[in-house]
């Protein structure tokens, strides 16, 4: 068995398997680092910067940075959380987020992160940029007002569905989610069973006809803050040494 890489996150000793990123090791150790574009099962993308931590005092995105022996990682600090708050607030004023009628409300990762950070209103001025809705497909909806350009759908369509239905066009404030067709989603080879439709963290890419299925009070983040699943469930057979089961230092030294 390859010995694990040991390092610390916020003073807590964690162990990573070789090749693991900081955020993966943190997840296994039960430490939640906020994230939006990262999703286990998809290639790291490193675009939202919410997962930014400092390694030896220097900022880097923990979803792309490989764990290394002896590094000192800080994540839950006032300064980093202040930056995270600002990033979230920017997403709210750049998109047009009407949570009161959004099908994703209660299950939305952006909204849940805003709750976690106690955002009651953004401190930036609302932009009210015009974004398009593509409702051409009979079973699938794109609402670009809510798209945070995290590329989860882009990666899932490419890597899991073996298609390439989604991509980006434009730069800066004009960057937008595009589909692999002249104009509309209904002209692509997207299918309602595509895994790409399961990964959107917000209400930008939705299956039609299933909205509001789960009543208020029973939705994912109604009572449980985002990240509770990571923080609450220790790895199976966790001996408490802080290492994941497969790289546990205690069992190795036995």
């Amino acid at each position: 068995m390859t010995p694990g890489i040991t390092f610390t996150i916020d003073g807590k000793q964690v162990t990573a398997a070789p090749g693991q990123t900081i955020i993966e090791a943190a997840d296994t150790a039960g430490i939640y680092i906020p994230r939006l574009c990262h999703k286990p099962g998809l290639e790291p993308f490193g675009s939202c910067r919410l997962c930014t931590v400092t390694v030896g005092g220097r900022p880097c995105s923990s979803c792309t940075q490989p764990a290394a022996e002896g590094i000192v990682v800080e994540s839950d600090t006032d300064e980093l959380n202040e930056h995270r708050r600002a990033l979230l607030e920017m997403l709210f004023v750049e998109g047009n987020h009407f949570c009161m009628f959004c099908e994703k409300s209660g299950n939305c990762e952006l909204q849940a992160l805003a709750y976690k950070f106690g955002i009651t209103a953004p401190s930036f001025t609302y932009q009210w940029q015009k974004h398009d809705v593509d409702a051409s497909h009979p079973q699938i909806l794109i609402d670009r007002n809510r798209c945070i350009l995290c590329a989860r759908c882009v990666r899932a369509s490419q890597d899991l569905d073996g298609k390439s239905v989604f991509g980006f066009v434009g730069r800066g404030p004009n960057k937008r989610l595009a589909v692999n067709a002249e104009a509309r989603l209904s002209d692509t080879n997207v299918d309602v069973t595509d895994e790409a439709l399961d990964v959107c963290p917000v209400g930008a890419l939705l299956r039609k006809h299933v909205g509001y299925k789960v009543p208020i009070g029973k939705r994912q983040f109604d009572h449980t803050p985002i990240g509770s699943d990571v923080e609450g469930e220790p790895a199976p057979d966790d001996c408490g040494c802080g290492g994941a089961e497969n790289v546990c230092q205690c069992t190795q030294s036995e």
Partner: peptide
């Protein structure tokens, strides 16, 4: 104190803001 989404972010009336 701003109470409600209309006060805090414009709410439903603000749907016209992109038009």
């Amino acid at each position: 104190i701003s109470i409600g989404d209309c006060a805090t972010m414009g709410g439903i009336p603000a749907l016209r803001n992109t038009v």
